[in-house]
Structure formats: structure tokens, C-alpha cells
């Protein structure tokens, strides 16, 4: 959909030094967690290209979406100057979002109905019968793993999953306390889900990388009767996402990753945002982050293409 969306808010979030902002738009079609909007920040061809921003909150009843963004280049600088009441040309929602909530809740329902090991599954290869019996008894959890501002699209996913009765747990790493507090910590706190926070300088949560905490918690699960991890969704620096995938897949935990790439058209026409993937038959081919993604199955992404 190509539309003019009204800006309801465009304001600083948290400490101004972090350059984080919150943009609320009205007049956007139905969006799913993980999708993005391709926004024309200026009608004057400068900057020329639209900017893809992930959707952080979806308010279906009021037909509003919220985007969190960091001012870090020409496009976001110009966007920061847009005032409430003005209209922005918006293409979208675009792309394939996370498949998790619907799929997960369906699977939970199915496991409650039947213990059959042959239930339909979306191409993942783990021992379904065993996991399924566990999840009947203990529910199972959706884990979100975020690095920095990669946490933004995961919020929409968390909201939807929590709304569907899925147990969600967030692992979120940032550089320091002020960043986490500015980048939406209070929203996550209000969601009332368990949060595992890490900072590089130790000023908030555990000191270190978010993947350190993920490893700790995964090891803990392996040796206890805690509910199993049904799926992981991750967004953040490429290296972090790769580490999450390489840690989780051997444990038969499916991972969905949200990738980022410079985009031209946003609709799959220009091939600017290609990502190399491994097909089921192991051959390499390209997909488009804008159209086939931005969310991909962890096992298909070729990290060092």
C-alpha cells in the first residue's frame, strides 16, 4: 500500500544523547510483527531514497503504528524534523514478518489436542514427539534475543505473542544503562515478561554480551525441568544473530532472524538488498531482504557469503 500517513508523534525517547526517537503514524494498513515501512522522509528528492524502518508497535484498533529509530544518517536526520500533523508518504507495510506467534500458538493447541509425533511442522527437523509432550506439560517459551536497536521489531512480536498467551522471554544487550533505558526498557517492563539484560560496561544487568546470557540460560534449561524453548527470534548485529543461530540449531530450537540491508525499491524489483541463502537442496541462491524477508529462517542464511 502506498499512502500518506499522518504523523501523530515524532519525539525524543529517553536521553537525547542516544539519538533515539519514537514516531507514531496513523493511516497504515494492517501490519504484522517483523514487517517494515518504506518512508519518504522528504518530498524534495533530498535525500533521494526512502528509508526502511521496522515496526515496533501495532495498534490495530486505532490503526496506528509506532516506529522507534536512531538518528544516525542524513535520512533519519531529516525524518527527525518532521512535525506532528504533517503527512509522510509511506510504502507498506512491506516484507514477510515473524511467523512465530500464529505458528506457535497453533502448535501449542495442537499439542494439547494430540500427542501424535507427526503433526505438521514448518520444515524444522527436531524430534517433535518428545518436545511436544514436554510442551503439553510445561507450555514452552518463545525467546527473543536482541542486540542494541535490534530490539525494536521484537517488541511488536512480543506484544502479539503475549496477547496469544505465549510465554515470552527477552534477552537484550546494549552498550550501557542509558541506552537500554532510552531504547524502550519501560515498554518491556510494562509487558511484564522476564527480561535478561546485559551491558558491555556492566552498568545495567549482567556485564558482557547478550549471547553470554543466552548460553547460560540455555545450559540451565538443558539440565532442568524448566519449560522448553519452542522458538527463538533474533534481531541485531549480524555476528550476534549468527552466534544465536549456531548455538540454537544444534539444540533443535528453530530460529527466525530479522536481517537489515540497504534498500532501493523495497518491493523486490531492484535487487539492491540481496542475501545469499542455502536452499533445502543445499545450493546457494539469493533472496531479497525487502520482499522475501526481512525475517528469514536461521538455517537458510549464509552468514559469510
Amino acid at each position: 500500500m502506498l499512502s500518506m500517513a499522518t504523523v501523530l508523534a515524532n519525539e525524543t525517547m529517553g536521553a537525547p544523547e542516544e539519538g533515539l526517537r519514537r514516531l507514531v503514524l496513523r493511516g497504515i494498513g494492517a501490519a504484522r510483527p517483523g514487517q517494515f515501512l518504506h518512508i519518504q522522509v522528504s518530498a524534495h528528492l533530498e535525500p533521494l531514497l526512502r528509508r526502511p524502518l521496522s515496526i515496533a508497535r501495532i495498534d490495530k484498533e486505532r490503526a496506528e503504528v509506532t516506529l522507534f529509530y536512531r538518528v544516525q544518517g542524513r535520512g533519519t536526520q531529516v525524518l527527525a524534523g518532521v512535525r506532528p500533523g504533517e503527512a509522510l508518504s509511506v510504502l507498506g507495510p512491506l516484507g514477510q514478518g515473524f511467523s512465530l506467534p500464529a505458528q506457535l500458538s497453533q502448535r501449542l493447541q495442537l499439542s494439547h489436542q494430540s500427542h501424535s509425533p507427526n503433526l505438521g511442522h514448518q520444515g524444522h527437523t527436531r524430534q517433535q514427539g518428545e518436545v511436544r509432550q514436554d510442551s503439553v506439560q510445561a507450555g514452552g517459551e518463545l525467546w527473543l534475543v536482541a542486540g542494541g536497536i535490534g530490539v525494536f521489531p521484537l517488541f511488536a512480536l512480543a506484544q502479539e505473542a503475549v496477547g496469544q498467551g505465549i510465554t515470552v522471554r527477552l534477552f537484550w544487550g546494549g552498550t550501557h544503562k542509558r541506552f537500554l533505558e532510552s531504547a524502550g526498557f519501560s515498554y518491556w517492563e510494562a509487558l511484564g515478561i522476564p527480561l535478561h539484560l546485559t551491558t558491555l560496561d556492566g552498568s545495567f544487568g549482567r556485564q558482557g554480551m547478550v549471547t553470554d546470557e543466552l548460553n547460560t540460560q540455555l545450559s540451565l534449561r538443558a539440565s532442568s525441568s524448566l519449560p522448553p524453548v519452542l522458538e527463538v527470534a533474533t534481531c541485531g548485529p549480524r555476528g550476534m544473530m549468527q552466534a544465536v543461530v549456531e548455538r540454537c540449531l544444534p539444540l533443535d530450537i528453530p530460529v527466525e532472524v530479522s536481517l537489515e540491508e540497504r534498500m532501493g525499491c523495497g518491493v523486490g524489483a531492484c535487487l539492491g538488498c540481496s542475501v545469499t541463502v542455502r536452499s533445502d537442496n543445499k545450493s546457494l541462491r539469493n533472496k531479497k531482504v525487502c520482499q522475501d524477508g526481512p525475517v528469514f529462517r536461521g538455517e537458510e542464511v549464509v552468514w559469510n557469503a
Binding site: 528528492l45 531514497l49 535520512g75 531492484c270 535487487l271 539492491g272 538488498c273 540481496s274 546457494l284 539469493n286
Partner: peptide, 20 residues
């Protein structure tokens, strides 16, 4: 052809560079 590695796009004043 799989094409070139990313980044394949760069924005420039009133224009863009592509190397698909």
C-alpha cells in the same frame, strides 16, 4: 548470476550508485 556482494547501493546527492 548471483551478482555482486552487498552493499550494492549507495545514496549520493540527488542520486544513487548501484552495483547489482
Amino acid at each position: 548470476r548471483l551478482g555482486n556482494c552487498v552493499p550494492r547501493l549507495a545514496e549520493t546527492p540527488a542520486g544513487m550508485l548501484n552495483a547489482i
